[in-house]
Design a protein around this nucleic acid. Structure first.
Lengths: 236, 236
DNA sequence: TACCCAACTTGCAGTCACTCCAAAATTGTG
DNA sequence: CACAATTTTGGAGTGACTGCAAGTTGGGTA
């Protein structure tokens, strides 16, 4: 008895709910679709939806486990002579070649990105996921490097690498939604990736260093142009 | 007519709501207090609470605007010869000296940290704030460096610096809540800050490099510590 | 002083995500 | 076929948040 009817039905139900939800969200936007609608579309009760997915956001974002596994692999399976940064650089460029989903280069990524960008709840959940993935990568690096549990460097390395890839993904998505062609974006992305990973490797210590001798005419630090102070309450 | 009665009352009401909310949250936890209770404690209606604060989370996390202003200052007012990283290193150590709130070293920080850690909603909002602050710092750096709007490096620099300070703050908070004395934590923090900022300056390119030739007996990864780049990656 | 307008506050009704609970319905087992 | 375990469902909440219409208040004006 490899898989009983029970297990199969569960898997099917979960899949049906997820697919229906994703379809509706992509079509009409996350906040414009209620959980009740998803339930109706999947022909289950609302309670069943929450039986499978902890929150409404999880209906749209439930690749976290996969992500963690993939990144663990990148760290663990890096080649001889490769540093952690090297491994992620290679992985990023490979993903760019194959149109892998994990950096947002897959087909339809711009629709997906727009839906996420338009929903505060989804953006928040995305950040939380990124945080957890970061912790996971940090753990993998720490384990690999056999570092002291008090050593903070693995976390720093993880944070910096993932900041870099996230930055690249976000810009790529923005350019895609702004109407640039995939080919254009890909070229730009390849160039920027090299530059950022180089910077990551060699350090940002010198960036923006202020000259020791101040020119005689230029005004000093900013005295003009005081911008807004009070933020507006009530966010949409 | 410097400030009418109307303005003063508004300021007082806002302050009263915020104070009552903060007190209740610190005492009983964020999720254990309803907005209705806050309203009752502040002697206003629930609607008035939402008139002043967009969300329940904003009742507790209200310093974002201040944070952005402070960080803008750090970037803009850096001294001659200082790079952006230098400026933030100095600012961090100064804040450590003065017990400044912005990195979580103030009195009662561990209670505050526990409340945030225990509430998913607050954690999510914290991440969102960090993201916005990061964007703000990136903008300041870009402006300062007079960089091309297409240049992604300012964002990378901002992300990496703030990742570092966030990492330090989080660990400090964790140690405080774990019962370490403030003096202990401060000493540890000072040492780690130097190490991490050094790493930030010199780059993480060599971290965790896997040896080219695999030793015939033992496992490959791990203990060889050959960091090829210039930085002396001291370990704690 | 009396009045009026604008801003601020409030109560009320409603939506939606999400929880708890107990009663079905379904599935696997002896 | 019974019986237990699991899943599904309906119903009755709770709590954040919104929109609306009716007060209430402060400031300026006739």
């Amino acid at each position: 008895m490899e898989e009983g009817l029970r297990e199969r039905k569960k898997r099917e139900t979960r899949r049906r709910i997820s697919d229906m939800a994703t379809g509706l969200f992509l079509m009409r936007g996350f906040d414009q679709v209620t959980v009740a609608e998803v339930a109706r579309a999947a022909d289950v009760s609302v309670n069943t939806v929450f039986n499978y997915f902890g929150t409404k956001e999880d209906l749209f974002l439930d690749r976290q486990a996969d992500l963690e596994e993939i990144y663990r692999g990148v760290v663990r399976d890096r080649r001889p002579g490769e540093s952690v940064v090297d491994a992620f650089r290679r992985d990023f460029l490979d993903a760019l070649d194959t149109g892998d989903w994990r950096y947002g280069f897959h087909e339809g990524a711009e629709v997906w990105g727009r839906v996420v960008a338009e929903s505060p709840a989804l953006r928040a959940r995305t950040l939380e996921i990124e945080r957890q993935v970061m912790a996971c990568v940090a753990a993998a690096i720490e384990e690999e490097a056999d570092a002291d549990p008090d050593d903070v460097r693995p976390e720093l390395v993880a944070a910096q690498i993932l900041s870099t890839t996230r930055l690249l993904s976000r810009h790529a998505l923005r350019r895609r939604t702004a109407g640039e062609s995939p080919r254009e974006v890909e070229a730009w992305l390849r160039e920027q990736a090299e530059a950022l990973f180089d910077l990551l490797e060699s350090g940002i210590g010198g960036y923006g260093r202020r000259p020791l001798v101040v020119a005689e005419d230029g005004e000093a630090a900013g005295d003009e142009e005081e911008d807004d102070v009070e933020g507006d309450h009530r966010r949409p």
